[in-house]
Design a protein around this nucleic acid. Structure first.
Lengths: 154, 154
DNA sequence: GTTCCTGCAAAATTTTTGCATCAGT
DNA sequence: ACTGATGCAAAAATTTTGCAGGAAC
């Protein structure tokens, strides 16, 4: 996507932030949870619970799928991950940065690939809506549908 | 939502448009399909396959859930319905108007209710992105998350 | 030593598919 | 009649839950 070189500004920073937020919440630290945090921090865009599980298993980690779901739920409750629906019926997740920096997704309707993009004018427009409507807006998602470069060529 | 009185401009018109589009495509007309079209045309916002099925059954219609899914899939392939993910893991659908008129959704994270809204500035911002990125944008969805009026009061 | 968290397996949901039958053309 | 579409039921896929054992504090 030419528009913008997207990346999680500081992958390691999210991991530290999330770990600290969980510590502040109380409860215990565990191998499974750390593994899921690590997998999330390492991914460039959103990933499903299955994908995270497979990746961890591939690395020899014996984490159970239930722990992946439970960790994602916990992180989501604390606003540490963002849930992304790409339209194929499986929930995907990605780190939510503390600064509120975020991006949105362009989903290819042909191959299902997902690209990230960010746009300040879009953010401004959404922010303006928040002042206008009778709804307390705490977050938002935008998904573009269409054809990625590769599928347009094919 | 104070912002805007949302409604499907012409509920009956969509039904006619969809029926005609399906006729043009070929294939047969059937009771089940007509029933699903009717249910879609009648709803004020998005509804899940289960909800549509329950509504039809409640009206004494013997339509099977598989036919509801199959009809929704068919309509989606032809761009006649829009799929809406409210974040609870069930797919919802609503009529897609031929004129391209459309709205977006504000989902309450407490009670799960969904409200529709429209915003020209938002549409303009999204349209501008289409000219900027290396992705052929054919559609888009926006979901606001937050608290509805009732849940803010509670 | 608590008790929070885990992994496994079973259950619950949502969606898809196989198939014999029904119905539109 | 031909064959698309249906309804049911079984299967598949995704997510949640119960539980006994293990690990953090």
């Amino acid at each position: 996507m030419a528009a913008h070189t997207h990346d999680h500004p500081t992958p390691g920073a999210w991991s530290a932030h999330a770990t600290e937020a969980l510590a502040r919440r109380g409860g215990r630290r565990s191998t499974a949870r750390d593994a899921v945090l690590g997998a999330l921090a390492a991914q460039d865009c959103c990933a499903s619970a299955q994908e995270i599980h497979d990746r961890l298993r591939g690395q020899g980690n014996r984490v159970g799928i239930a722990s992946v779901y439970r960790t994602l739920e916990l992180l989501h409750e604390h606003g540490l991950v963002t849930r992304v629906d790409t339209g194929d019926g499986v929930a995907r997740f990605e780190p939510a940065l503390p600064g509120g920096e975020h991006h949105h997704h362009a989903v290819c309707t042909r191959c299902g690939s997902v690209e990230a993009f960010a746009d300040d004018a879009l953010e401004a427009a959404i922010h303006a809506i928040g002042d206008r409507v009778d709804f307390e807006v705490t977050g938002h998602d935008v998904a573009l549908r269409g054809r990625c470069r590769a599928c347009r060529a094919a």
